[in-house]
Amino acid sequence: MKMIACTEGRSDRVEAFSLEMINAARSIAAAGDEVVAFFAGQAAKAAASSFGAADRLIAADAAGSDLIPAEAYARLLRDTIAAEQPDLVLVPYSANGLDVAADIAARTGWPLLSYVNEIKRDGESLNVVAQMYGGKVLAECVVKLPAVLMVNPGAFEEAMPGPVDAAKVQQFDAMPAIESSRVKMVAIDVPDYADVDLTTAERIVCVGRGIGDEASIDIARDLATILGAEIAGSRPVVDNGWLPKLRQVGKSGQKVKPKLYLALGVSGAPEHLEGMSHADLIIAVNTDPKAPIFNVAHYGATCDLFDLVASLSDRLQASPGR
Rank of each mutant, 00 (worst) to 15 (best):
residue 1 M to T: 15
residue 10 R to D: 07
residue 16 A to F: 08
residue 20 E to S: 08
residue 24 A to R: 02
residue 26 R to N: 11
residue 27 S to R: 04
residue 29 A to R: 04
residue 31 A to D: 10
residue 31 A to S: 10
residue 36 V to G: 09
residue 37 A to P: 12
residue 39 F to L: 05
residue 40 A to R: 08
residue 41 G to T: 06
residue 44 A to Q: 04
residue 45 K to Y: 08
residue 46 A to N: 11
residue 49 S to W: 06
residue 51 F to D: 00
residue 51 F to K: 11
residue 51 F to E: 01
residue 53 A to E: 04
residue 56 R to G: 13
residue 59 A to N: 08
residue 60 A to R: 05
residue 61 D to I: 13
residue 64 G to M: 03
residue 67 L to S: 10
residue 69 P to R: 01
residue 69 P to E: 09
residue 71 E to T: 15
residue 71 E to I: 13
residue 72 A to C: 03
residue 74 A to Y: 00
residue 76 L to P: 14
residue 78 R to F: 12
residue 78 R to C: 12
residue 81 I to N: 00
residue 83 A to P: 13
residue 83 A to V: 05
residue 84 E to Q: 06
residue 84 E to Y: 06
residue 88 L to N: 04
residue 89 V to L: 10
residue 90 L to Q: 00
residue 91 V to G: 01
residue 93 Y to H: 15
residue 94 S to V: 06
residue 94 S to H: 03
residue 97 G to Q: 03
residue 98 L to T: 15
residue 106 A to C: 12
residue 106 A to D: 07
residue 107 R to N: 14
residue 108 T to G: 08
residue 110 W to S: 05
residue 111 P to R: 02
residue 113 L to C: 14
residue 114 S to M: 00
residue 117 N to M: 11
residue 117 N to G: 15
residue 120 K to E: 11
residue 123 G to T: 07
residue 125 S to F: 00
residue 126 L to G: 13
residue 126 L to W: 01
residue 126 L to F: 09
residue 132 M to E: 14
residue 133 Y to V: 15
residue 142 V to H: 12
residue 143 V to Q: 03
residue 146 P to F: 01
residue 150 M to R: 06
residue 151 V to F: 02
residue 151 V to K: 00
residue 153 P to Q: 06
residue 154 G to E: 01
residue 167 A to R: 12
residue 173 D to P: 11
residue 178 I to V: 15
residue 182 R to Q: 14
residue 186 V to R: 07
residue 187 A to E: 05
residue 188 I to A: 12
residue 189 D to S: 15
residue 193 Y to F: 14
residue 196 V to C: 10
residue 202 E to H: 14
residue 202 E to V: 14
residue 205 V to A: 07
residue 208 G to V: 07
residue 208 G to E: 05
residue 208 G to Y: 02
residue 211 I to E: 09
residue 215 A to H: 02
residue 215 A to F: 03
residue 216 S to K: 10
residue 217 I to M: 02
residue 219 I to V: 12
residue 221 R to Q: 09
residue 224 A to K: 06
residue 227 L to T: 14
residue 228 G to D: 00
residue 230 E to D: 12
residue 230 E to M: 09
residue 233 G to L: 05
residue 236 P to Q: 11
residue 238 V to A: 08
residue 241 G to N: 03
residue 242 W to G: 15
residue 244 P to D: 00
residue 244 P to Y: 00
residue 244 P to M: 01
residue 244 P to Q: 03
residue 249 V to Y: 07
residue 250 G to F: 02
residue 250 G to T: 10
residue 260 L to A: 13
residue 261 Y to I: 11
residue 263 A to H: 10
residue 268 G to I: 00
residue 269 A to C: 02
residue 269 A to F: 00
residue 272 H to I: 11
residue 274 E to A: 15
residue 278 H to P: 01
residue 283 I to R: 08
residue 285 V to A: 03
residue 285 V to K: 01
residue 291 A to T: 05
residue 292 P to N: 02
residue 293 I to A: 11
residue 297 A to S: 09
residue 298 H to K: 13
residue 302 T to Y: 01
residue 304 D to I: 09
residue 304 D to G: 11
residue 310 A to R: 13
residue 319 S to I: 04
